[in-house]
Simulated scan of single mutants.
Amino acid sequence: MRLEEANRRFNQLSGTRFEDLFSPSDMQMIIINKGKTGQLLELSLGMHLSSTNLDFEDGELKTNKCDASGNPRETVFITQISSVIDELIEQHPFEETHFYEKISNILYVPVCKDGSPENWMFLPSIHIDLRMPEFSSLREIWRNDYYSICKQLRDHIEHSPDGFIHTSNGMHIQVRSKDARDSSGNYHPIYSNVYGRYVSNKNHAFYFQKQFVYDIRRMSGLY
């Protein structure tokens, strides 16, 4: 499925209470697995989202918990950075990065989870394609954020007391820690070939900050 088709389907479903959208058996699964937003999307689209690099044929799905007005309650996960740390340290060209691939064509789907699961609902989704002229300002913001964060990470490695990367912020984009202990109770440190050492004692990831949501809502004119 392509993003435009998914966008059309989600917007047809927006504002419909989950109790009116899903079957009783589906609702039971939702109640048991309240955090499984991906399963909600699969059910609503009648499809199975794959574990490949991109969620759809031509782009990426981004969901977020929000209130009934569409205000974000969380930041939006983009991608982990452990496998591309040297790409960031060396400031590879923005448009040639794994990070750009993950954000160049995205469908943002807000999910209102106010009250009980029966009352949850999808709100209007927003399709962002950085190739389109109307999103040139976003492309510039995200390009500037990318290069700023690359510089911040390198500065942390070279000048922070522990020699590790730390939270780095742009206008819309943020890098911060995201990790969970493995079965042995250990985190997943990040190793840099550029520096020949570990540059973090746990994994980190790119996120969209809440300001991203407010700005794309304003640009879309849907809210």
Rank of each mutant, 00 (worst) to 15 (best):
S177M: 11
Y207G: 01
I31D: 12
R143A: 14
L153K: 07
D215T: 11
L49V: 15
Q209D: 11
L138K: 06
E90C: 13
T75Y: 02
A205K: 05
T97L: 10
K102P: 03
R181N: 14
R9S: 02
L54R: 13
G115K: 07
A6W: 02
K210D: 15
V213H: 09
F122G: 00
L49R: 12
V194H: 15
K210F: 11
R131Q: 14
E95C: 06
L45W: 09
C112T: 00
E87H: 02
L49W: 14
K62E: 01
S82Y: 12
D55W: 05
N33D: 12
R217H: 08
A6R: 09
W142S: 09
S14G: 04
I126Y: 05
G35R: 12
L222A: 04
L88E: 07
G15Y: 02
N64I: 11
L107G: 02
K36T: 10
N193P: 00
T16Q: 13
Q211H: 13
Y195G: 01
E90D: 12
E90V: 04
E96I: 03
R197M: 06
L222N: 09
I106S: 04
S50Q: 11
S23W: 02
R218A: 14
S25A: 10
N11Y: 04
I106N: 01
M27G: 05
N11D: 10
S200T: 00
Q209A: 11
R139G: 03
P161N: 11
D26V: 05
R218V: 10
E60T: 01
V109G: 00
F10C: 04
S23R: 13
Y108K: 06
N64R: 04
S192H: 03
L222P: 00
N144R: 09
D26P: 00
L138G: 00
L54S: 12
N105T: 00
L41M: 13
S184P: 01
P24F: 08
L49T: 09
L49P: 00
L153C: 01
S51F: 02
P161E: 10
M1T: 09
V175E: 01
G35W: 01
F10V: 03
Y191C: 03
Y195Q: 06
S69K: 11
D155K: 04
G59R: 03
F18W: 08
T97P: 04
S116A: 12
H172F: 15
W142L: 15
I157L: 12
N53W: 14
I149M: 02
P189Y: 05
P124K: 10
Q12N: 04
N186V: 05
P117M: 14
C150R: 09
Q80W: 01
I173Y: 03
L43E: 08
Y147W: 09
Q91G: 07
E42G: 08
N169C: 12
L13F: 02
N144L: 12
Y191D: 13
S183M: 14
S148H: 03
S220N: 10
